[in-house]
Design a protein around this nucleic acid. Structure first.
Lengths: 228, 228
DNA sequence: AAAAATAAATGATAATTGTCATATTTAGAA
DNA sequence: TTCTAAATATGACAATTATCATTTATTTTT
């Protein structure tokens, strides 16, 4: 099985401050798992006892609203970690993590993580920074959801998806989402999302190739996202 | 000047795990300040080098949107702490903290806080839990802003305001907000907020006594907040 | 490959929400 | 107090967004 001290994950995030010894310890205790598209890596309300390192693949973090609708809170990809908030706060997981494509994930038991937190203040601090950044981004999201019209939020979301996932060899945003998932990200009805995407295409701002979306005019999108 | 080890603050939050010695150190270095209604305790984008303990008074945490509108993210009252996120993440403050009434606040220099974080893992952990809880609440807020109609959000907000601030001797929610501030909390136009408040009053769910709001039927509000 | 199921697209219409205008009330300053 | 400014309230209307119905396209299953 692969070794944590050689893993690409350690180049990212909080994990980059871990010593060789700590990574070896992780290696000895970790389990690798494959999450198939559509399956849940974490489920809202459940407790977990470890940290997930996303090796490969993409997932969405969602919340089920009281009205039964799914809200997508965040997208996660290879190199990201999941579950640290729950470990640190000793609370159940707050979001569902659902695979958007097949994923390769490593699971590192809570005990090892807590040990590193105790031994390695820098690791601990990096986890805190990660959570703080998420809080900061969440506050921005609240503001935008509350005050921006759907069209602006769609533009914003498309830019952010390209930022997160990059583009493929045809310059399309490198993630496959259904129209419903896009709608659940910006908080609108699926039909509205479809209509606004069609408008953006008609205006030459984006191109739609099946589920693939290509941004043609980033500046125009940026303007729309700011209400112009 | 008052002494931290006798302060009511230490009954709350992360501070409750601090030792007598730590509190004495805080006491020696702290400064007390009065923030007048309308003044800012913290300002978005500025850096701070310490922790604020709110002794008394209320404030709103806001974010200025790209469209120039103010979004209220959170309300803060006596017993709460502010600035720990910025200290821990070593980033500028993300939100404005504006006094809703005159406030008494203590400021404890960053150095003392960082020392306690190093010495006292439980203190550190409690700060993390505080930030984690905020993140969890923020995610819920995103979902509600994105998916619930304004009426539901208003009902939700009224319940939450009573939860946070309690009621005065006339059973009114114990905080004075302008209609504009209520609108900026739920993310709507001031006129819409006014109209929906009037409707709730007409339906006998709340009573409006000037700026004071009294919840008459908590169950009805709860139902409205959930879309019934 | 054909059939069935799911997703996307579009029109028609209704409901929600925002904007502008204006009146009324309240709070603050001279 | 009296004046002035600001906040609240309400109507009229426009813009945005949701819902429902239906068609077309795409994906999945048999």
């Amino acid at each position: 099985m692969s070794n944590c001290s050689h893993c690409i994950m350690k180049r990212f995030n909080a994990l980059k401050t871990l010593s060789h010894d700590e990574l070896e310890r992780f290696s000895d205790h970790k389990t690798s798992l494959i999450i198939k598209k559509g399956e849940n890596l974490m489920t809202e309300g459940n407790s977990i006892n470890g940290l997930y390192c996303i090796q490969d693949g993409k997932c969405k973090l969602t919340k089920l609203n009281t009205n039964g609708k799914e809200q997508i809170i965040k997208f996660v990809k290879g190199g990201d970690i999941l579950g640290h908030r729950s470990i640190l706060s000793e609370e159940p997981v707050g979001l569902n993590a659902t695979a958007l494509e097949d994923m390769r994930v490593c699971f590192i038991p809570k005990g090892d993580i807590l040990e590193s937190i105790k031994d390695n203040p820098q690791f601990s601090l990096n986890l805190i920074k990660n959570i703080s950044l998420q809080l900061s981004q969440a506050n921005t999201a609240i503001s935008q959801m509350a005050q921006k019209p759907v069209k602006d939020r769609l533009a914003e979301t498309l830019l952010s998806l390209e930022e997160i996932f990059g583009v493929d060899n045809e310059d399309c945003i490198d993630v496959i989402l259904t129209r419903e998932e896009i709608a659940n990200t910006i908080g609108t009805a699926t039909e509205s999302a479809i209509r606004l995407l069609s408008n953006l295409k008609k205006d030459g701002v984006i191109d739609l190739l099946g589920k693939k979306i290509k941004i043609l005019n980033k500046n125009a999108l940026k303007n729309i996202s700011e209400g112009y």
